[in-house]
Design a protein around this nucleic acid. Structure first.
Length: 260
DNA sequence: CCGGATGTTCACCT
DNA sequence: GAGGTGAACATCCG
């Protein structure tokens, strides 16, 4: 999915529907429904009015009328949220711009005729009711040093693996983590629990500032490192050949010269 | 043709 | 228990 930044733009899009009444719920793909049946989702949301939207990490939440469950939307790597026939706020690099109706996995039709739909070619996202927020760590956009310290606490796992662990810290994906560590000058494969306290403070700052900067630039793929995230890429800071390794199960690029 | 990709979950190892 | 790996999802791109 989209990482935290892209989900935030989807939340802003979904927020335009606040006040609208849901006339019809479209759940054509039962595989996309997590822990609920199509009829449960339809019954729970039909006739409800959108009250508010929220986001925790990469999870988008839509709150409807009282006594109704919260709707949780996940986008996987290729999910997009579309309102009406409007062009999406942010075009995914991965997506080719095509928009096959067969990829519509979930949708809400409102009384005013507008339609909010989740299109996901690869079906990596999902829809749930009353998502369990206790399974997500603090949101990375606002993580404090103390929260980050707790997330990394005494772990032998590689730092990057912990930063990607949504239960520890919610919102960072592969690109944001690589960009953040590159900016902070920290190796992704260092043991998470081995960071000195002042390094944790700096890393928390780097996470917040990197998220904010790439947000201003327009998305997770707008990092300085992005163009060089290819085989044979070089560090944009000092020209050193980048290392490419699998860390935390994901392809990772980092500079051996300045990430220590 | 083949390998990977802004993600997550699960089974199965060590 | 903690970590790691590979598979699965389905499409596009180099």
């Amino acid at each position: 999915m989209p990482e935290l930044l892209e989900v935030e733009t989807y939340r802003e899009l979904a927020d335009r529907t606040v006040g609208r009444r849901i006339a019809t719920v479209e759940a054509p793909d039962t595989w996309f429904l997590k822990g609920v049946t199509a009829s449960q989702v339809v019954d729970a949301l039909t006739g409800a009015t959108v009250h508010a939207t929220g986001r925790r990490g990469k999870l988008l939440t839509i709150e409807v009328g009282e006594g109704r469950p919260v709707l949780g939307l996940r986008f996987g790597m290729t999910g997009r949220l579309v309102l009406d026939g409007e062009a999406p706020i942010e075009r995914l690099e991965y997506a080719s711009g095509r928009d096959d109706p067969a990829w519509d996995r979930f949708g809400l039709r409102f009384d005013d005729g507008s339609r909010l739909r989740l299109s996901d070619p690869r079906r990596l996202g999902g829809v749930e009711l009353d998502p369990d927020l206790s399974r997500l760590g603090p949101d990375a956009a606002r993580v404090s040093a103390a929260q980050l310290r707790a997330a990394l606490a005494a772990s032998a796992a590689p730092l990057k693996a912990r930063l990607l662990d949504q239960a520890r810290l919610a919102g960072l994906g592969n690109l944001l983590v690589d960009e953040t560590l590159w900016r902070a000058g920290v190796r992704p494969d260092r043991a998470a629990g081995a960071l000195a306290d002042d390094q944790v403070v700096l890393l928390a700052k780097a996470i917040r500032s990197t998220v904010a900067l790439l947000g201003r630039r327009g998305g997770s793929h707008r990092g300085d490192l992005q163009e060089q995230r290819v085989r044979g890429g070089h560090c944009p800071r000092d020209g050193e050949p980048l290392r490419r390794e699998t860390v935390g199960g994901r392809t990772t690029y980092w500079c051996p010269a300045h990430q220590l």
